Computed example of a mutant assay.
Amino acid sequence: MNVIADFLLAAGAFTTAVYCLVLARRLKRFTTLETGMGGAIAVLSAQVDDMTKALDQARKSAQSSSSGLEDQVRRAEAAAARLDLILASLHDLPQQPPPDEEMAEDRRLRFVRRRPDRSGMRAAE
């Protein structure tokens, strides 16, 4: 009975040793930087750094654009206030009578077409 127990214990130890060897090889392949998961993690880490830098640049650009837009909005509001004041002052002007239709017809532009003077030209001989 002891022999069978020793044999089973030795078989279990051998199986455990083989299992540990297989796991060690898999772990070594998993963590290699060139081909395994370590390489993928390194690439992803570099991409995260690049994206962080791009995000910071975009944030700075958005802040400068926002301040520029705020300045333009302030200027537009000031111009609108001036236009409102000008329109209000135009309401105070007296009304002008509409122009007569005859005067409107006289004011129409007329185009006259003239033929070129051909007296200076000679006929082909």
Results as ranks from 00 to 15, higher is better:
residue 1 M to D: 07
residue 3 V to Y: 04
residue 6 D to L: 04
residue 6 D to H: 03
residue 9 L to P: 01
residue 10 A to P: 00
residue 15 T to K: 11
residue 15 T to R: 11
residue 15 T to S: 14
residue 19 Y to S: 15
residue 19 Y to E: 13
residue 20 C to E: 14
residue 25 R to C: 14
residue 26 R to L: 14
residue 26 R to Y: 09
residue 27 L to C: 05
residue 28 K to T: 12
residue 29 R to S: 11
residue 30 F to N: 09
residue 30 F to G: 06
residue 31 T to G: 03
residue 31 T to P: 00
residue 31 T to W: 03
residue 32 T to A: 11
residue 32 T to Q: 08
residue 33 L to G: 06
residue 33 L to H: 05
residue 34 E to D: 15
residue 36 G to N: 02
residue 37 M to W: 12
residue 39 G to L: 00
residue 39 G to D: 01
residue 39 G to S: 01
residue 40 A to Y: 08
residue 40 A to S: 11
residue 40 A to Q: 15
residue 40 A to P: 00
residue 41 I to Y: 02
residue 42 A to Q: 09
residue 44 L to Q: 15
residue 44 L to N: 15
residue 45 S to K: 13
residue 46 A to N: 08
residue 46 A to S: 13
residue 47 Q to P: 01
residue 48 V to F: 05
residue 48 V to Y: 10
residue 51 M to V: 11
residue 51 M to H: 10
residue 51 M to I: 13
residue 54 A to T: 10
residue 55 L to E: 09
residue 56 D to C: 05
residue 56 D to F: 04
residue 57 Q to K: 11
residue 58 A to H: 06
residue 58 A to R: 04
residue 60 K to G: 03
residue 61 S to P: 01
residue 62 A to T: 05
residue 63 Q to R: 10
residue 64 S to K: 07
residue 64 S to D: 08
residue 65 S to A: 15
residue 66 S to H: 08
residue 66 S to F: 06
residue 67 S to M: 08
residue 67 S to C: 02
residue 68 G to T: 12
residue 68 G to Q: 14
residue 68 G to W: 03
residue 69 L to C: 05
residue 70 E to M: 09
residue 72 Q to W: 04
residue 75 R to T: 14
residue 75 R to Q: 15
residue 78 A to M: 05
residue 79 A to I: 06
residue 81 A to M: 06
residue 82 R to K: 15
residue 84 D to S: 13
residue 85 L to W: 04
residue 85 L to C: 09
residue 86 I to L: 08
residue 91 H to V: 14
residue 91 H to Q: 15
residue 93 L to T: 02
residue 94 P to Y: 00
residue 94 P to Q: 01
residue 95 Q to F: 05
residue 97 P to D: 02
residue 98 P to D: 07
residue 99 P to I: 00
residue 100 D to K: 06
residue 102 E to R: 10
residue 102 E to A: 14
residue 105 E to G: 02
residue 106 D to Q: 13
residue 107 R to W: 13
residue 109 L to G: 09
residue 110 R to H: 06
residue 111 F to P: 01
residue 111 F to Y: 08
residue 112 V to Y: 03
residue 113 R to Q: 10
residue 117 D to Q: 02
residue 119 S to Y: 02
residue 119 S to K: 08
residue 121 M to V: 15
residue 122 R to Y: 07
residue 124 A to F: 14
residue 124 A to P: 09
